[in-house]
Amino acid sequence: MDIEFIVDILPRLLNPLKVTLLVSIISLTLGTLLGVSLGMIWVASTPRSFQRLLLNSYVWFVRGTPIIIQIYIAFFLLPKVGLNLDVFWVGVVALTFNSVGYQIEIVRAAIESINQGQWEAAGSIGMTQRMTFFWIILPQSARRMIPPLTNELSNLIKASSVLSVISLFELTKAGDAIIASSFKFAEVLLLLSVLYFSLIQALSAATKYLETEVFNFDKADFESGKTFGQIY
């Protein structure tokens, strides 16, 4: 193992690391905005309605096809419809498209996990459904979305490595280039793993903080019924 070599190439991977981080975070953020909106539409729609069928088909497609195919579709299809984006933004579109599929499910599950009594109590003080959703249900669901969204973020960071197939110069692609010129597989792969690992650990710690310190209202997970078990 050539430690000196690893120290040597580290600076050359910092920029690609930034690309990996950016493409994942932007995709997660866009994915959350769209995922929450579409998840709300899912929850508000009736079973067997057109909206729900459409959203379900979307979720099934994303879940049922490999991400590499989704990336190629974005890469070849976007120029066909007149969108000649920079490869970075093609990557964002592909990852966002993928992530929304999973996030619709995350949002739906989080909203449906909120006790029906919260809707009833809000209705009884004269709140409309819309007000109830924004003031009561969404803030409580948000906290429950954080752990699965952390999962999703780590998935996205790792999935972004597949963007090397459309020659986005992110971490994996940069590593590939160094391997091609130096043939030092072990050192490069070790370093890549450590970098991915550290990135994901750091972001997980951040979301854990968000979950326990910022959304710190239901440590006892009050409305899920655990409080009853503890007191009575």
Binding site: G117, I136, Q140, R143, F217
Partner: peptide, 14 residues
Amino acid sequence: IGMVFQGFHLFAHL
């Protein structure tokens, strides 16, 4: 019409 429920249903995040 004010309503008080068996299960309280306070808004957990407030």
